[in-house]
Design a protein around this nucleic acid. Structure first.
Lengths: 197, 197
DNA sequence: ACCTGAACACCGTTCAAGT
DNA sequence: ACCTGAACACCGTTCAAGT
């Protein structure tokens, strides 16, 4: 059960990341928090960026597993989809540094660990969207493309919220979750046999 | 007509920013590119972040003016809106470092220069959305909120493209502009008197 | 008013040893 | 196999002068 040194270093890096941004993650402080010397990280990671990529990959794996559990939990795909998108935005707003790290630019080759976890999460969401389409809750069409639209909206709403360009206090709670719900309502209303009130 | 030293420093910073990210903007190189010493920037900007904020504010002013000109140029508000959103995404993808700088986190108080230019651009877009709503090209409702939805989608689609999470080569050109057009089509179809083909 | 040059603390990274 | 400590180049920032 003893935590490996590698995990201790990842924990330290994550803690510093959450307290600031990638600049706040100094290898010296990572080593210190793990009770080691200033360059112990180099015995486990080739560079600072490789360490950050491991932090990002671990977080992405957590989120993929959490998404899978939530999708299994919800019986109605409509609610499962709405919940997944809302949790995505809430996570981004709660952990902005992790969000910006994962979707930031890498000067090293993007580790396949990262790409694979992202792809797996994507596939889960696409399957849910397809299920809602079959039940008539979303317009027909390529589910991958419709999923991309939904993700883009949740992603952009979260990022604009972090930048202070969305007024959560303003009229009609136009926060990130509200915008995602607006989109889902517009799409649901746009169905044969359904009409806007 | 001689360019001020201040402008030369801003140009140098922008050039370094476009070639990399904010880390690539070193005050020493900014000074060198402007033909000055390594700490000449401190005679014009209190810190590196204040310099970057000035770069961001200048870019945001340019974009606000460009948006105003484009909105004046187009006669149909539908096309003006579609063009404005497409140009937003294209700009983000062409100048990722400027995009990430403007919507990134500031540890200094966000300069009012920045907030004002962003607000002005926002108001222009809201007016266009309202015009399209009046012509029946978009669902009724708070135009500010509907504009936020459109912006969030364009913003998120661009950011996901930069992260490599959108496949522009895949089926049905699901690139950033394609997703924005999808959203506009879904919203336009969701109107009384209009039906999906 | 604007600029230079030396100096300081900090950081990523490398290297030679240590066990 | 994993870790330490010294060392190097680089960076943001400060300060004492210079014109």
């Amino acid at each position: 059960m003893a935590k490996s040194t590698r995990d201790a270093l990842l924990d330290a890096a994550e803690q510093l990341l959450d307290a600031g941004d990638t600049d706040a993650v100094t290898l010296r402080e990572v080593g210190r928090l793990a009770g080691l010397s200033h360059n112990a990280p180099y015995k486990h990671f080739a560079s600072k960026e490789v360490l950050l990529a491991a932090v990002a990959a671990r977080e992405l794996r957590r989120r993929r597993d959490e998404l899978a559990a939530a999708l299994e939990r919800d019986e109605q795909p409509e609610e499962a989809l709405r919940g997944a998108l809302a949790r995505y935005a809430e996570w981004a707003i709660a952990f902005p540094a992790r969000f910006k790290l994962i979707y930031g630019r890498w000067t090293i080759a993007v580790p396949s660990e990262l790409a694979d976890a992202a792809h797996a999460a994507s596939q889960q969401l696409i399957a849910t969207v397809a299920a809602v389409q079959e039940r008539g809750g979303l317009p027909a069409g390529d589910p991958e493309r419709l999923t991309a639209l939904l993700r883009a909206t949740a992603h952009g709403a979260a990022d604009l919220t972090l930048a202070g360009h969305l007024s959560p206090d303003g009229k009609g709670r136009a926060d990130a979750t509200g915008l995602v719900n607006d989109l889902l309502s517009h799409l649901a209303a746009n169905q044969p046999g359904r009409q806007q009130p």
